[in-house]
């Protein structure tokens, strides 16, 4: 058990893997600013043990934070995926892109698959709006 577990609001560190989702792509085409797109995109899927450690139920909002940004998204529990403690899954979207490093080593390729962040309960705070 890491130090974060003993904080008043438990905090865990995770690495995020982003992915494509057919329902998200369809919702994006229909209305990027619609509720359906936001519902499918502003979400992080965590291992059930990580959810338990955070004292968060599925559907609750959580704060994702690193040195590049802070967003509030909905937490979901893994379904068919094998156990993946410390690894979280997010659909690739504006919400995940708020947490991607600007470091590219001059190659023009952002580190979309190298996102490390902390997760804490958002205690009811609303999902971050899609705006710039």
């Amino acid at each position: 058990m890491d130090f974060g577990s003993f904080l008043a609001a438990p905090e865990i560190k995770v690495k995020v893997v982003t992915y494509r989702d057919i329902f998200q792509d369809k919702a994006m085409i229909e209305n990027l600013f619609g509720d359906e797109y936001k519902h499918i995109s502003a979400v992080i899927t965590l291992d059930s043990a990580d959810l338990k450690q955070l004292n968060v139920k599925k559907g609750d909002t959580v704060i994702l934070k690193n040195s590049f940004g802070r967003v509030v998204v909905r937490a979901e529990e893994s379904g068919y995926e094998p156990s993946h403690r410390g690894i979280a899954y997010m659909p690739k979207s504006s919400w995940s892109n708020m947490l991607v490093s600007d470091e590219t080593c001059g190659k023009g390729i952002p580190r979309f698959q190298d996102i490390s962040l902390t997760v804490t309960s958002a205690k009811g705070e609303k999902v971050t709006e899609l705006e710039f």
Binding site: F68, G69, S94, N97, S101, D102, P110, F132
Partner: peptide
Amino acid sequence: SDPFSSLPRSIAKSLL
């Protein structure tokens, strides 16, 4: 295209 959505915000913000 929509680089404000597809690029990291830390990079796309220069477009502003």
